[in-house]
């Protein structure tokens, strides 16, 4: 897997509604359930399900009551992979702040699509091929949304056969490019 693919995979692992906020709400070592729940204002069952997934993805370790030496110490501890994802989450957050369109990583495939465009894969099939597992339907939907939000522009190419070329809008190029550099430094 080359660097570009690893960057895209990392950004894919951060998308979704809660992964990034949870990572950003944890401190360096990890965290406890109750402060996380209050900070994120999330239903306990939903937080539980997300934490469980993060544990199965190898980002967190859920300590048993016997493993915790003090009730104030974290219940969830970041693994090495989790620490890396937390740094990546910060880079994504910074990029989203600079783009100024709110959270983009809460949409499935949102950030990976923008990063793919910054790697100059501009045609629908090229984008699709560079994002392993994306469906044509969701790609089409995201491209339309980003176009409506003026994050990307599309240009009709006549040659070799009529197709659209998707590109990042000028104000989005720099933050997304910077994000690709930041994520590349972590993979």
């Amino acid at each position: 897997m080359n660097k570009e693919e690893r960057v895209l995979r990392l950004s894919r692992e951060l998308d979704g509604q809660w992964t990034l906020p949870i990572l950003l709400s944890l401190d360096e070592k990890g965290g406890r359930f109750t402060p996380l729940q209050n900070k994120l204002d999330i239903a306990p069952s939903r937080l539980s399900a997300n934490l469980k997934k993060m544990v199965s993805d190898g980002l967190l370790i859920h300590l048993t009551p016997q493993e915790r030496r003090h009730p104030l110490l974290p219940e969830y501890v970041l693994t090495e992979k989790g620490q890396l994802h937390r740094q990546a989450a910060r880079a994504v957050q910074l990029s989203e702040e600079q783009i100024g369109h709110g959270r983009l990583s809460d949409k499935t495939w949102g950030m990976p699509i923008l990063l793919t465009l910054s790697f100059e894969h501009g045609r629908f099939q090229e984008i699709r091929q560079s994002l392993d597992g994306i469906t044509p339907r969701i790609l089409s939907m995201r491209l339309q949304e980003f176009h409506n939000d003026r994050l990307i522009c599309k240009q009709l190419l006549e040659e070799p056969r009529p197709s659209f070329l998707y590109q990042l809008e000028a104000q989005v190029q720099r933050p997304v490019h910077q994000l690709s550099i930041d994520l590349a430094s972590l993979v």
């Binding site: 406890r32 359930f33 109750t34 402060p35 209050n38 539980s48 009551p65 009730p71 219940e75």
Partner: peptide, 27 residues
């Protein structure tokens, strides 16, 4: 402190305190 799920109470003995911290799993 509800937000961090922590509290302490004084006991019948001076400087002997009980602390409580909310946790998902308790034994």
């Amino acid at each position: 402190d509800s937000s961090s799920g922590m509290a302490m109470v004084n006991t019948n003995t001076q400087d002997c305190v009980l602390g409580f911290s909310e946790a998902e799993a308790v034994e």
